[in-house]
Design a protein around this nucleic acid. Structure first.
Lengths: 221, 221
DNA sequence: AAGCCGGTGATTTTCGAAAATCCCCCTTGC
DNA sequence: GCAAGGGGGATTTTCGAAAATCACCGGCTT
């Protein structure tokens, strides 16, 4: 893996987790120090992230972490439901044994980690992503899967801004929602699976809206 | 505008028009010569294009123009219909006078250029893009508009591969299709507008499939 | 006192060379 | 004859400095 790839993944993670706050100006000198490399690989990584809308670039004024806003969150959720419900329908129509197996496995791994409690945030997030990917993995569309990844990353940024996503549990059993989705999907009940998925995302949006800290977004810079 | 931006737009155009053939390896020395700049801005442009799937990058082996295939074309068309039909429905629901005005104007400009005949390929393409954008301009979703741009670019690559897109006219009146779409849209008849749009894209796909020259894709390199 | 102009320092952008890596072909050994 | 190993050249990747641009501040004019 090249340094540019390393920089890309590191920056991506730091932006999604919020280690680099929304709106933060990304000065080259600071980034060189932080990631221990020259500016060439960093600039390449930033250009990729710009195309994914995780950073903004302004000509001759450099880069900054893309800011967050509730209006953008609504758009993201809406797009996400559109993409993933279609991908889920396609998967249900086309998926075979390997796909079903992947869902069952991902759900189990997610459930284990989720009961394990507070400490394991990083792994929990990874398994949550793996589960949602498993659901739509058989859709057989590079475009839909690519859009899914971008939208998932953007959604995750909002979730981490909401009180460190501490147990979204407020009157909500997320494990049960995941189980219900998996069940409807494996039963090849497209309409029910799609409805559950959309509802899942709408609730997540509501939770984020309720706990969103606009202060977390740095000023325009 | 920075050199990197210049390189980005120039490369993007050359890839979409086919001036840089699908599959062609993009050697830095060749690109420096062709675009008259050093490699830093070129590499930044290539990284952006990679995120848009117009070029492939393989670690330590450089970049190449993303290859085309009929399987990918089917996926692109399917994704395009999903995105644009939703964006069209939203636009019809939300659009105001400015939006309607934009459609009428874009349709007129397109029609003028299209009757003007063979010579004006570049301008025709630009107006064709402007028309399709005008239809969905009121959807008020950055994500959907962004996806539209990527999918449009990819579709355009296939169209230019098909016999220089010479008058797709084979038993087809494209102007009439555009007029019908605009009419249904302005009448706020979502279902009919969406059906016409989807049919428009399916026919374009069929035309491309019929005239596609697989030889045009350079070998794996 | 308010507004405009110019200079200085900070920052981004770009270049060209150095370092690292890969590809191809030739040699060598079995 | 064929596979494995190695060397030379081509290519990508990375660095650090130079060039270009911007932002801020103080002074000057009105």
């Amino acid at each position: 893996m090249t340094l540019a790839d390393t920089a890309y993944y590191a920056l991506r993670r730091d932006i999604i987790t919020g280690a680099l706050a929304p709106g933060l100006p990304l000065r080259m000198a600071m980034l060189c120090e932080r990631y221990g490399m020259g500016m060439s690989p960093l600039r390449e990584a930033l250009n990729r992230l710009q195309a994914e809308r995780l950073v903004d670039a302004i000509s001759l004024k450099g880069f900054r972490v893309a800011p967050l806003s509730l209006a953008e969150l609504a758009d993201t959720t809406q797009a996400r439901i559109l993409i993933e419900t279609e991908a889920l329908r396609l998967s249900i129509a086309k998926g075979g044994d390997a796909w079903e197996t992947g869902i069952v496995g991902a759900l189990h791994a997610l459930s284990l980690q989720s009961q394990r409690g507070e400490g394991a945030g990083e792994a929990l997030e990874q398994r949550h992503h793996a589960f949602h990917l498993a659901l739509i993995a058989a859709c057989d569309s590079r475009w839909l899967l690519g859009f899914f990844e971008k939208l998932y990353a953007e959604s995750e940024r909002y979730r981490t801004q909401s009180l460190t996503a501490q147990r979204a549990a407020h009157g909500r059993d997320i494990d049960a929602e995941h189980r219900a989705m998996a069940e409807a999907t494996l039963a090849r009940d497209s309409d029910r699976a799609v409805a559950l998925l959309a509802e899942h995302y709408r609730r997540t949006e509501d939770f984020v809206v309720a706990h969103f800290q606009p202060a977390a977004s740095a000023r325009r810079a």
